[in-house]
């Protein structure tokens, strides 16, 4: 319930939106609906700025890579991404991971990306794909790397997110998550992108905030192996993952369990990328 909301604005241009937002002091952005509303901590919100009137709904895939507008719904993203080939294979399962049709229709890419919370399934995927955020503020438009820590998140403060760019290229990506039932927040998740000896591997829900854990030791193993994986690569990846992951405990899972299952998810992501069976 909004106890204080007295102003609703629907800007029809970027300039109007920037003026209303006033670098974060003017009101709260409504990218499509769910971001602000679901969490319930908005009793004090006085002004919402609904961005639906802005032309940020593009979904374009080309030689330069993929560009996704901030107002694209998760459902539209999930459907479109299914056709973008193996490099982007991780996007659809992450976009559609909380499989509630009404929420997928309302939740926007912009809302999800800007959400400073650890259980957003898109975050590790966008990090693994080295996404760029296209942001706008009074100084103009620029591209920022996808934030993986608190400092990166701070750089977004006061900006509007216009969309994101996913660089073109090869390789494959995959995404795995673990939850109690099918419609559930993840207890942990992981995403990987691999092309030859290059790899980016990230895990989420490894701390209280939106920061991601980059699995550098796993990436190191992969780049060392190139196309010549040892037969016991699963065991080695698991060990490397456990070295990178902290035992983050919250009321929903113990630290050791979350660490253990995240390592399994990393192995499964790589098995999928390699076209191998999940387990042996």
């Amino acid at each position: 319930m909004y106890l204080a909301l007295e102003r609703y604005t629907r800007p029809s241009s970027v300039a109007e939106a920037l003026a209303a937002y006033a670098g974060g002091k003017g009101g709260v952005l409504l990218g499509g609906g769910s971001t602000l509303n679901v969490e319930g901590n908005h009793e004090e919100v006085e002004h919402v700025i609904d961005l639906q009137g802005l032309p940020w709904k593009q979904l374009a895939s080309g030689a330069q890579g993929v560009e996704v507008g901030a107002l694209v719904s998760l459902r539209a993203l999930g459907r479109a991404a299914a056709a973008w080939g193996p490099r982007f294979a991780a996007i659809a399962p992450a976009a559609l991971a909380y499989p509630v049709v009404g929420l997928l229709n309302r939740a926007t890419v912009g809302g999800r990306v800007m959400l400073d919370r650890n259980d957003v399934d898109l975050h590790p995927v966008l990090a693994a794909l080295d996404a760029r955020l296209l942001v706008v503020d009074d100084a103009g438009e620029r591209a920022l790397p996808f934030p993986t820590d608190a400092a990166g998140r701070r750089a977004l403060a006061g900006c509007l997110l216009r969309g994101l760019q996913l660089p073109a290229g090869g390789g494959r990506s995959s995404f795995h998550r673990h939850a109690r039932i099918q419609v559930d927040r993840p207890l942990c998740n992981a995403a990987a992108w691999v092309e030859g000896s290059e790899a980016r591997v990230f895990a989420g829900v490894q701390g209280p905030d939106a920061a991601l854990t980059r699995l550098g030791a796993v990436e190191g193993k992969l780049s060392g192996w190139g196309d010549q994986r040892p037969p016991d690569w699963r065991g080695q990846v698991r060990e490397a993952a456990l070295a990178d992951l902290v035992a983050y405990e919250d009321p929903w899972a113990s630290g050791t369990y979350r660490q253990d299952v995240t390592a399994t998810l990393v192995v499964r992501c790589l098995a999928e990328v390699f076209g191998e069976a999940v387990s042996e």
Partner: peptide, 10 residues
């Protein structure tokens, strides 16, 4: 969102 009862998918 936090109390998980079975859904049609489960």
């Amino acid at each position: 969102r936090d109390y998980k009862q079975f859904t049609a998918l489960d």
